[in-house]
Nucleic acid binder design. Structure first.
Length: 354
DNA sequence: AAGCCGGGGAG
DNA sequence: CTCCCAGGCTT
């Protein structure tokens, strides 16, 4: 490239970039790696408090590798995409067992670690080791799609390949660490999704979308499809000591590995909950108290959650075996809970009359 | 190539 | 409400 894209970006970054994010301090491969995983599909402002707490609890990759996965999930609770946490824990053991606790300094080897793909590997190589590597996250996709007027949704293979080519082309040999931060900062602060501040952009003079006054057309938007609606009963089962029953979710699938409330099929009417609890959970309960339901939206479907509280008078065996366990409220809140379940257990719930 | 996998910020 | 965020894995 002869348009000095990187030089202009770096000059802007020196003046206006974000130089004080938590993972910029005490920079090492471990901290960079954790931040990159947390930042996948997650905004910076959301990540910051999670990153701080996580580093307090797991200061090194060995601390992480030696920790119970439940401990890792509890620190991920509310952040979403929990496979990231499971993969992070697994990768930590890989780093310790296969690489003696030292992160590999090249992208190809980093990609053998669970949860690290092409862009994350490049980010670690550049940020932690200062070696040349091209990244392509959501910010960079938007900047490059506009700058080169690349049509189409970046989820399409051809569009993605074209963007990777531009990403490689613009990545400089010098100051790669600053450059990767600079192009992400530009995307986050100037070349924003809506109403970009092209007046403040250091590369607007060579931006094709800006020249055509068509920044709003790039990048192409994702084709949307309707999300199915699902419904479930969520049971707040309390024993005589004030403990609540939680169920560990299967290791894969939605909320994989997290502790959640026992559920019942929505085909059951409210008047059948007592029987169902006894038959399916082995719990003799009092009358259910219905709590106002709410809708929770996932990336690919909506879930209507209908909570019901039942006092348990006698256990007849089944529960407290395998995946079911009783917790005192403060214990429960220290577990890896899905965000809506945490809210449900925390907020003073409004009760609806049956 | 398309689906799966969360939760929240911002408009 | 919609859109998308420092994506990767599975099918």
């Amino acid at each position: 490239m002869t348009d000095r894209f990187a030089d202009k970006l770096l000059a802007w970054y020196d003046q206006h970039g974000r130089h004080n994010l938590p993972w910029h301090h005490d920079r090492n491969a471990y901290r960079v790696w954790v931040s990159e995983i947390m930042l996948q599909q997650t905004q910076v402002t959301t990540v910051i408090p999670y990153f701080e707490a996580f580093m307090e609890r797991f200061p090194t990759v060995r601390d992480l590798a030696e920790a119970p996965v439940d401990d890792v999930l509890s620190h991920w609770s509310g952040l979403g995409y929990y496979a990231r946490a499971r993969n992070l824990h697994k990768a930590a053991t890989q780093v310790v067992d296969e690489f003696g606790g030292e992160f590999p300094a090249n992208a190809e080897t980093l990609e053998t670690l669970t949860g690290i793909g092409r862009s994350t590997a490049a980010a670690i190589v550049a940020q932690a080791f200062g070696k040349r590597a091209a990244i392509l996250d959501g910010n960079v996709k938007r900047v490059l799609a506009r700058h080169h007027a690349v049509p189409g949704w970046p989820g399409r293979t051809g569009v993605l390949r074209q963007l990777w080519e531009y990403a490689e082309e613009h990545t400089p040999d010098e100051r790669v660490r600053d450059y990767t931060q600079a192009i992400m900062d530009l995307g986050a602060m100037v070349c924003t999704r809506s109403k970009p501040e092209c007046n403040a952009c250091p590369v607007s003079d060579t931006c094709q979308a800006f020249a055509r006054n068509e920044t709003h057309l790039y990048p192409g938007s994702k084709p949307k499809k309707a999300k199915p609606e699902k419904t479930t009963w969520m049971l707040i089962l309390e024993d005589t000591e004030g403990r609540v029953l939680l169920e560990r979710r299967p290791p894969s699938g939605i909320w994989g590995g997290l502790w959640s409330l026992p559920e019942l099929d929505p085909a059951h009417g409210a008047d059948e909950l007592q029987q169902a609890c006894e038959r399916e959970l082995g719990l003799e309960c009092h009358e259910p108290e219905l709590i106002s339901g709410f809708r929770h939206t996932f990336s690919h479907y909506h879930l209507h959650i209908q909570p019901a509280r039942l006092s348990v008078q006698r256990q007849k065996g089944v529960a407290e075996s395998g995946r079911f366990q009783w917790f005192y409220p403060d214990q429960a809140l220290n577990m890896g809970l899905p965000a809506p379940i945490r809210t449900l257990l925390t907020e003073p719930e409004q009760t609806a009359l049956l």
